[in-house]
Amino acid sequence: MTALLEVRSVAVRFGGVMALSGVDLDVQKDSITGLIGPNGAGKTTLFNVICGIRQPTTGVVLLDNEEINGVPTQKRSAMGIGRTFQRLELFTTLSVFDNVLVAAELARVSNPHAVAREQIELLGLTDRADTIAGELPTGSARLLEVARALAGRPRLLLLDEPASGLDDVETQQLGVLLQQLKSLGITVLLVEHDMSLIMKVCDQIHVLDLGNVIASGTPDQIQHDPSVIDAYLGAVR
């Protein structure tokens, strides 16, 4: 196994607060890696660093052994990084189809319309293709974020709480989809509070607390790690 993404002693300081203080973690190629931790642990900040929205105060990020610290946000999608947002960032006045189409066009795929249709179908949004994105219920909006990120043809997909707002059935379908993406050769880094989903689909989990990685391992190891139970999971479910 080789690492697609390596985060090396990344620290981010907001004024007097250390949002991340020296985070080290790897995301293996073709894996689903979970990133969990209480709110405020620094998960979204880490995503922002990986996408180039925020520069780390210290430390480096490597994609495929290549340092990407200075690369501007808009060039990182061409390098294969795609993401969704915890606070939805849809193009709210465009239709569902156009949301995905814009992504496909920006990625310069050869047939953007076909790619967009394909992703919308994959996420089960075909019936809503003409709906204005701002009018979608939260669950579908989350799925649209995933579809849009996929249209950019990422190698590494960062998902920020994709299951929040989904019902049980939809969450289950999302789990199946994630396995499907993995088999298609897309590496997923997943931030999620739904522990049953995390434990079911992830190959590897990193636990973040107060800007530090406090544990890394397989779902089984994490579930029985005393420090994780203490900081986040509480009683073993």
């Binding site: 946000t73 999608s77 990084i81 795609g82 849809l90 193009f91 006045t93 465009l94 814009v102």
Partner: peptide
């Protein structure tokens, strides 16, 4: 395509940038 990008930029410059705009 450019027109869609204009509107997309209005709605969410952040998402646009992460998609390569």
């Amino acid at each position: 395509s450019l027109g869609r990008q204009f509107v997309a930029m209005k709605d969410s410059p952040l998402a646009g940038a992460t998609l390569g705009m």
